[in-house]
Design a protein around this nucleic acid. Structure first.
Length: 652
DNA sequence: TTTAGGG
DNA sequence: CCCTAAA
């Protein structure tokens, strides 16, 4: 009877997330890399432009940032600052409209749409020809496009390109233009914006252009071939990552930048889960599930996460000089082998100097929610605000060695262990806001300990289903500074999310769900092949609620203790964050909990009634198991219902 | 992949 | 929760 009752109110009625997804294990392998990769890709743009923005603001030279009147303190001294400045010097004199990171990122979207008017075509060799593009950039565009293609085909190249690009920008700003980059850039700028930036090159502009190009390539009109090829590839390749449609890439970028949560369908996903399930994204087709979007125009929700930076290489002896930083990619590492490049080489100089070359800086992933009806402009502003909120209050760098934060600023590097090769491999930097208030959702704590990101400005009411989500927003993919894409892993660059993109059309919602990611993205994209383990972080802890416990107990009562997969399917099928291993573990602890005295129990108290059932079920199934064992190896599944129901422990 | 257990 | 040996 009791059982019956429980069945009635069934678990479906519980707040169990409904997220159809592949088994955890599967998600892990594939989606994981993906997500990480994705995070990086988009990071480039965001960071690049962000740097520009910061620079402008910090220098105060920036005339007036039309929309954002915020004046944020410049970065605190340090490597980071230098790196960034170095990378964006060209931006100084430029007038970047809004100058926000948003700008560049979103232009992609816009460009994409516009470009639909320009039929393009390209051959399989990657060559691109422009049939009907604006006069201003016809040829150049073609050149760039082909370049873009290269990038697509080889992330490593892409990365290097960017690095190179940065270099060129710097040079061009000095009047020494080596390649035709400036030209390209100008073309890109004018093509996209109309022309107001054509006179000066900027990192942002370039990136923008790159994005544009990609989008352009993705236009259906001119690239049916691509699509077909892609499909074909997808069909015959085990790993359809060989070729990625530019459009997909572009979209993915956006999607990554903007992580919209589809609560309804994926209510409880945590970052990590999300990212892992990159492949599963397509399943979240219920776009309307973006709660709150329609509700208000300004209920933008932004969540930040901790950001950890990694030192990825050591090369020149310039220490932290900008020069050393920017050169490191070429000098210190093998451009073709990003993965290896991530390694630190600490040539112990005669002077016992430890040489660093920080190739990347990351900022936390941003989670933003805005109404569907909001304007692109407001979206941009929202992003800018989010970004500025992180760095606005100024920031400093935290040093992490082997995952542990080095708190003592007075210790020497040698004392700290930052002078030997081994340790340097695990050295990383974390960008931290100087004041928590300044950035409410920024994590400042020790990375190893789940940083508690403060709730996003709550005023922006979070969707109903938000429950339990906040905690999932911690770690996330880290945005990477353009200067160092080198770290990325080719493989991961490829594919997932492709499916998702299928549904994305230029006119579709500006942003797409982004599998966020904790473990996933949180995990450093740096040479995963070799040192993934070092950065894979634990899943965020998610204590079982009484409701879940009830469901678990109920399921076990019926299925027994040796069929966790079935238990999972029956009671937690929609709770993707609960794997059968989790359930098994939980049962283990439940049994233990039920065994110990109430005083010794911790955490959310589990009703004694449930614990009693746990013990009863445990005893019953243990006995049953033994019985089965003694008898013939009749599988557990053969348990006769009658018998089971008759003996099943039931608290009546 | 799923179980079963130790860490 | 994680990691893994076994199955």
């Amino acid at each position: 009877m009791v059982l019956k009752k429980r069945v009635d109110h069934g678990f479906d009625g519980l707040r169990v997330p409904v997220i159809p997804k592949a088994p955890r294990s599967a998600r892990r392998r594939i989606a994981f890399k993906k997500a990480v990769e994705d995070g990086q890709v988009c990071a480039i743009e965001l960071l690049a432009s962000l740097a520009g923005q910061l620079l402008q603001e910090s220098e105060g030279s920036a005339s007036s940032n039309a929309s954002e009147g915020n004046h944020h303190p410049p970065f605190s001294q340090g490597v980071i600052e230098q790196d960034i400045q170095d990378g964006v010097k060209p931006l100084k004199k430029e007038e970047i409209h809004q100058g926000s990171c948003v700008e560049s990122t979103f232009k992609t979207e816009v460009a994409s749409q516009n470009s639909s008017q320009k039929p393009l075509s390209h051959t399989k060799t990657g060559h691109v020809s422009v049939n009907n593009s604006s006069d201003c950039c016809e040829k150049v565009e073609a050149d760039v496009k082909s370049e873009i293609f290269e990038w697509d085909n080889k992330f490593g190249n892409y990365s290097n390109r960017l690095v190179e690009t940065r270099e060129n920008f710097r040079k061009s700003s000095d009047g020494k233009i080596k390649n035709g980059f400036k030209r390209e850039q100008e073309a890109g700028s004018s093509c996209i914006r109309g022309s107001n930036l054509a006179d000066k090159c900027s990192l942002e502009g370039h990136l923008e252009f790159a994005s544009f190009s990609r989008n352009g390539n993705g236009i259906k009109l001119g690239f049916r071939d691509d699509d077909e090829n892609f499909l074909r590839c997808k069909k015959f390749c085990t790993k359809p990552k060989a070729f990625r449609s530019p459009r997909r890439i572009a979209h993915r970028r956006i999607r990554n930048l903007m992580s919209f949560k589809y609560w309804k369908t994926a209510p409880k996903l945590k970052d990590s889960e999300l990212s892992r399930s990159d492949l599963g994204v397509p399943r979240y087709h219920k776009r309307k599930t973006c709660y709150g979007f329609e509700r208000s125009q300004h209920n933008a929700i932004v969540k930040k996460r901790k950001f950890v930076d990694r030192v990825s290489g050591v090369t020149s002896d310039g220490g932290f000089s900008s020069e050393s930083v920017s050169n490191s990619p070429q000098k210190g590492m093998d451009g073709d082998k990003p993965s290896s490049s991530a390694k630190l080489h600490v040539p112990k100089a005669k002077d016992s100097h430890v040489k660093f070359s920080i190739k990347s800086i990351r900022i936390p992933e941003l989670y933003i929610e805005v109404p569907e009806t909001s304007t692109v402009g407001s979206l941009k502003r929202t992003i800018v605000e989010a970004v500025m909120a992180i760095l606005g209050g100024g920031a400093h760098v935290g040093v992490l060695l082997q995952g542990k934060k080095v708190r003592d600023d007075n210790r020497t590097l040698v004392q700290t262990g930052i002078s030997c090769n081994e340790n340097l491999d695990t050295l990383s930097f974390m960008l931290e806001p100087t004041s928590l208030q300044a950035s409410p959702t920024v994590c400042v704590g020790d990375p190893s300990s789940q940083c508690e990101t403060s709730q996003p400005t709550r005023s922006t009411e979070i969707p109903v289903l938000d429950s339990g989500i906040t905690d999932t927003l911690h770690d996330s993919p880290l945005l990477t500074y353009p200067g160092n894409l080198i770290e990325s892993n080719h493989e991961s660059t490829s594919s997932l999310a492709d499916t998702t993109l299928d549904k994305l059309t230029p006119d579709s919602r500006a942003i797409v769900v982004v599998p966020a990611t904790t473990e996933t993205l949180a995990v450093v994209p740096v040479s995963q092949k070799t040192k993934r383990s070092e950065f894979v972080q634990r899943r965020t802890r998610r204590p079982f609620s009484v409701t879940e416990v009830e469901a678990l107990v109920h399921a076990v009562e019926e299925l027994g203790t040796g069929r966790w997969r079935d238990v999972k399917l029956r009671a937690f099928e929609n709770a993707d964050h609960r794997t059968y291993v989790d359930l098994k573990d939980k049962w283990k602890t439940l049994v233990h909990t039920a065994t110990i005295s109430p005083q010794q129990r911790r955490g959310e108290p589990v009703p004694q009634e449930l614990l009693d059932r746990v013990l009863a079920a445990h005893a019953f199934w243990s006995q049953h198991q033994a019985k089965q064992h003694g008898k013939h190896q009749a599988g557990p599944g053969t348990l006769k219902i009658t018998e089971a129901s008759a003996e099943r422990p039931c608290v009546c």
